[in-house]
Simulated scan of single mutants.
Amino acid sequence: MFEKLFDPKLVSKLLVTIGDVSEVTGIPQRKLRYWEDKGIIQSSGQKDGSTRKFDYINIKKILLIKELLDEGYTLESSVKKVEERIEKLQLAFNKLQEKQNHSE
């Protein structure tokens, strides 16, 4: 069932325009640009004038931040909580990768 919810091939290739991210998340493009200017999220393409595109990790961050904002957290505290979650996930995945490498 998890395979239906998460397709690693799609996730690795996923790059979504700022307009699509705005439409799907309900967050105005203006706010997404503000978050990007503050270093909260990152896109590709804006430096050379092309369309901003967001990858899976940044879309996930946007959705998590929005969820926390909707629950009444400030932007600053939302960002901090999301960064902590991502860091914990990364540490867990790193440990799993080490364990897998040692068992091979």
Rank of each mutant, 00 (worst) to 15 (best):
I65V: 08
K88A: 15
V79Y: 02
E76L: 05
K81M: 08
S77F: 00
S77H: 02
E84V: 05
D70E: 07
K95G: 08
V82A: 03
V79R: 04
L89E: 12
E84F: 04
L75W: 05
L69E: 03
R85A: 05
K88L: 14
L69C: 06
A92E: 15
L89V: 08
K66F: 01
D70S: 10
I86K: 02
K95A: 05
I86Q: 04
D70V: 03
L91G: 12
S78Y: 05
I86E: 07
V82R: 01
L96H: 08
R85W: 11
T74P: 03
E83D: 14
Q90I: 13
I65L: 01
K81L: 11
N94C: 08
Y73G: 02
K80L: 11
N94G: 13
D70Y: 02
E87C: 07
E87V: 06
A92C: 13
K88W: 11
E87W: 06
T74N: 07
L91V: 14
E71L: 14
E83P: 10
I65C: 06
L75G: 07
K80T: 14
E67D: 08
E67P: 04
V79Q: 01
Q90A: 09
S78M: 02
S78L: 00
S78F: 03
L64R: 01
E67W: 08
E71S: 14
Q90D: 12
Q90P: 14
L89C: 09
A92Y: 13
Y73F: 15
R85S: 09
L68T: 04
E83R: 06
L91T: 15
K80Y: 06
I65G: 06
I65K: 07
L64V: 03
L69Q: 01
Q90M: 09
A92F: 12
D70M: 01
E67L: 06
L75K: 02
L69I: 13
L64P: 04
L69K: 06
Y73Q: 12
K88T: 15
L68C: 07
I86D: 13
K80E: 07
K66M: 07
K81H: 06
E83F: 00
L91C: 11
L69G: 02
R85I: 14
E87Q: 10
N94P: 09
S77K: 00
E83N: 09
G72N: 08
I86N: 10
L64N: 04
L68F: 09
L75T: 05
E71Y: 06
K88Q: 15
E84I: 01
N94K: 10
V79A: 03
G72T: 02
V79E: 03
L96W: 05
E84M: 02
L64Q: 10
K95N: 11
A92H: 14
K66A: 03
L69M: 10
K81T: 13
L69W: 02
I65W: 00
N94M: 07
D70P: 00
L96G: 11
E76K: 13
V79I: 08
K66T: 07
N94E: 12
L68Y: 07
E71F: 14
R85H: 12
I86W: 01
E67F: 06
E83Y: 04
Q90G: 10
K80F: 11
L64S: 13
L89R: 06
E87F: 05
K95V: 15
L91A: 14
Y73N: 12
Q90N: 12
L75M: 12
L64C: 08
N94L: 09
